[in-house]
Design a protein around this nucleic acid. Sequence first.
RNA 1: GGCCCCUUGGUCAAGAGGCUAAGACGCAGCCCUCUCAAGGCUGAAUCAUGGGUUCGAUUCCCGUAGGGGUCACCA
Length: 542
Amino acid sequence: MDYKELADLIFPNAKPIEYYEKMYPERDLPEGAIVTRYAPSPTGHMHIGGLYQALCSKMAATKTKGVFFLRIEDTDQKREIDGADTEIIDSLKEFDIIPDEGMISSDEWKGNYGPYKQSLRKDIYESYAKYMIEIGKAYPCFCTSEELEEMRVKQENAKIRPGYYGVWAKCRNLSLDEMAEKIKAGVPYIIRFKSDGREDRKIEIHDGIRGKVIFPENDLDIPIIKSDGLPTYHFAHLVDDHLMRTTMVIRGDEWLASVPLHVQLFQEAGFKPPKYCHISPIMKNDNGNKRKLSKRKDPEAAVSYYEEIGVPPEAVKEYLLNIANSSFENWRRQNKDKSIYDFDFQISKMSVSGALFDLTKMLDDSKAIISRFSAEKVYNEGYKWAEKHDIELKKLLDQKDYALKVIGIERGKEKPRKDIAKWSDLKDNIIYMFEEPKEFDFDKINGEEAKKVISEYMKLYDENDDKQTWFDKMKDVAEKCGYAREVKKYKANPEKWPGHVGDVSTVIRVAITGRRNTPDLYEILQVLGKDEVMDRLSKFTN
RNA sequence: GGCCCCUUGGUCAAGAGGCUAAGACGCAGCCCUCUCAAGGCUGAAUCAUGGGUUCGAUUCCCGUAGGGGUCACCA
């Protein structure tokens, strides 16, 4: 019995790897092009950290005219959640982080290196597992989970490093004949990697974000094929990223400690390892303690949260990009209308320590983005959101032509209004333009005095006035009622008048909108139209 | 616990052996021919800690503390 015979016994039908090597050739890409991927497990809702990884990967690939693909890592059937894969696909679409290749539904994909879903690649893994056995780098292990547990307890009690290695790796030293015998006898087994690493030797790793990191070599004979016949993460990573010709692996830093194993796997298999980039998680301050954003505890960890409160996907991305490369926000200020893909994203500039999530800052980004949207876009996005989350807002927006005018107030100027951070702010922002206010809290000028101001104003009001004329009339009203025409003059001699033109316009503002603070009053009156203005004002004079 | 990584204002952070240690969010104040939102200006606020190396360290080295990650037939 030799390795070849053992391999044939275990995987009699597996194709030689040359078959796949030919099927998935090296990619013909320009110099320096990065081939990278987002490779989530479909185990739950899409997480903001996942979106962050996908964004960074897409940025890196796009910048170098490379390839960004989506691979679904569903080798753990126990943890798999139905529909999670399509949720991931949909989320990426929603955020316009479109993969060049990868799954486009539960069972379809685009691209020449598929399937891009691990459960569909079982034959491929078998070929490569067989290959590993043939070259003497893998072997069957017959230990039961009870035996492994027992071993772990022993190791723990003896205070030695736990794991399947060295003298603890019992099956590693079985003769090939013994292995074959057990297999023929039907003893269940898994396939393990045969590590030649030594724990007392160091390996230097060059991470694309962290720089040089030194680890002990891996000496664990880790499982590569589980008893269900599917590969473990590590082995699937080796096979897939080799065959998909990945050049850069961008993933969460929980994988950093596995890099010695991974480069060893590539080396022993005779393949070229990718460049690794481990990104730090997004954290949250929990009572003074920093911790990873958690799907269970933190609503803001789920990407769906932003859709629910109505933060545009663009804003979420911009915020994430700020965290990734802080020079982004300066760039953005200089390049307000450019696509994010024009930004010179540097994966190496990413922070090594995890950033605390800051919703306030994201909302600030969001305000800036929404302020630059056209009225049509605000209308459309707001409407889409309202249909799902706020039926009353939807009703208002159903008066489309009028709603567009309302939304257009102070929009499209050099300094557009920045007062909407999320669609859930919209209704409160515009409601008084649709419904007459019911409560009026006049400020300085109230009661009979306010009535007088209003009736004087009604005498002069002409909807055809331009803004200057309109404001001059406001000053006339102020003067007529005994207030200062100019704020400045008033401030110079506050004892001379009971108030100024600002106080007077506040009366009109409150009478019309029920609020003391609103956008430009002139524009509001224009949009409301003469009839409505007179109607609202006359309530106070009758 | 072993191994690995990290530590600049409240937050995100730039930075380099010698700088008044950028910028952004937030906060405070002022300005801006009507209020807000903006915008402009100004301000308060930072190099975890103890030792070295050095003429000089926040930057380099070592230790300490704190934080994070990892040690599965999970990814």
